[in-house]
Each structure stands twice: as C-alpha cells, then as structure tokens.
C-alpha cells in the first residue's frame, strides 16, 4: 500500500465496523457479475454494479465466514488440473456404463471420516467428490466429519477401500491447496487427538 494506505485502511476498517456484511471482495464479485449480465463494460454499468452490490449486501447481510485459508499456487494448480482430468474421466466412465450393452451396474452406500474440521474445505471436498469418478456425495455431517457417499460399480471390499482411498486423496489435494497447515491433518504421526471424533455411533 502507498503512503495514503494507512489512512485508507483506517477508513475502510471503520466503514466495515459500521457495515459488517460488506466486504470488498463481495462487492467486487457482485459488480463483476452485474457487468457480465449486462454484457458491456462501461462506466454506467460499473457504477451501477457497485451501487447494486452495496444495496444487496446492506439489505441482505451475509454471516461472516471466517476463512483461514492459505492459497498455494502450485498445489492449487494440481488440484484444478487433476479435477478437470477426473471430471472428463468420470463422465466418460459413467457414459460408457450407461450405454454399454448387458446388465446395468449397481453401487453401494459407504461412509468415511474426513480429515478436516473446516466447513468450507469439507464442502469443497464434497462437491468435488461428487464430480470425480465413482462417487456421489449423499450426506455430510460437519460436526462428526462423516461423509456418506454412493459408489458406482463397487462389488468387493477391496474396491470399496479403493474408493475411500480416492476420496481421501481428493481431500488431501484440497487441503494442500488451501489449508494453512495441511500436514498437521494429513500426517498420521502429527494428527492431533480431537475429542468429539469418537462420539459417532
């Protein structure tokens, strides 16, 4: 930030205290959506977009999401590229299962415990798991970190374990890309004992 930055930041934080729901990122995002909806980039659209974004955020304040994330560019690139490749593979697989002659395949319902406590990262993992090969998410209990999913074409215990392994790998990629300290969750030697992990029936 420049010399005027301190004053500007001061004013900004004061403004934020007065308007708790209004975050600059949200204003920017809503303005971008507004401009894209109008389909042309000019002053009127940008000003109108900022005004609409402010009105929306003041009238419908969102709960503050406490995101403690750290973006690692390399791990994030791996996450995105791998996800797109998985999406293509999953689509082709399911499409083939749908059109191939012969008996149609069934699946099983299974569940597993996620490593992270963060609701945002859990949601991101669940959404991605729904789109990668073999699995669709059915249920997610954030408190107990229990993810219930449906796996297509699983018949044996070893195949079920393979699906669990894949989901864990997906979560590991998400954590490595965004979590501030992924190894604390992923490394079994450093995994902290969390009370509450035992209460599931």
């Amino acid at each position: 930030m420049s010399a005027g930055g301190v004053g500007a930041r001061d004013r900004l934080s004061r403004a934020r205290r007065r308007l708790p729901g209004v975050s600059p990122a949200a204003v920017l995002w809503l303005t971008a959506v507004w401009v894209l909806l109008w389909g042309s980039l000019d002053v009127l659209n940008v000003v109108g977009g900022v005004l609409v974004a402010l009105v929306v955020l003041v009238l419908f304040p969102l709960p503050r999401v406490d995101l403690r994330l750290r973006l690692r560019p390399l791990a994030f690139t791996i996450l995105v590229v791998r996800f797109l490749a998985d999406l293509v593979r999953a689509s082709v697989e399911v499409a083939w299962l749908a059109v191939r002659p012969g008996p149609v395949s069934r699946g099983v319902v299974m569940d597993l415990e996620l490593a992270s406590d963060d609701a945002f990262l859990q949601t991101l993992t669940a959404e991605m798991v729904s789109l990668v090969p073999g699995s669709v998410v059915i249920d997610l209990e954030p408190g107990t970190r229990l993810l219930t999913l449906h796996a297509l074409g699983v018949r044996t215990r070893a195949q079920a374990e393979r699906v669990r392994h894949k989901v864990r790998a997906q979560e590991a990629r998400v954590l490595r890309a965004l979590h501030p300290d992924p190894e604390a969750l992923l490394d079994p030697r450093r995994r902290r004992h969390t009370p509450g992990a035992e209460v599931t029936g």
Partner: peptide, 23 residues
C-alpha cells in the same frame, strides 16, 4: 440414457451429475 437405464435413485444421480456437467 443413463437416467433411463440405471436401476435406482442413487445410480441415476451419477448419470445426472457427471456426464451432464461435462456435456
């Protein structure tokens, strides 16, 4: 086709999400 051929709700969900999104 998957939506029509798959035997139950959860398998149909597979057809409804993955090829659909990529398509």
């Amino acid at each position: 086709i998957g939506l029509l051929r798959f035997p139950d709700l959860l398998t149909r969900m597979h057809a409804g999400t993955k090829p659909q999104v990529l398509g």
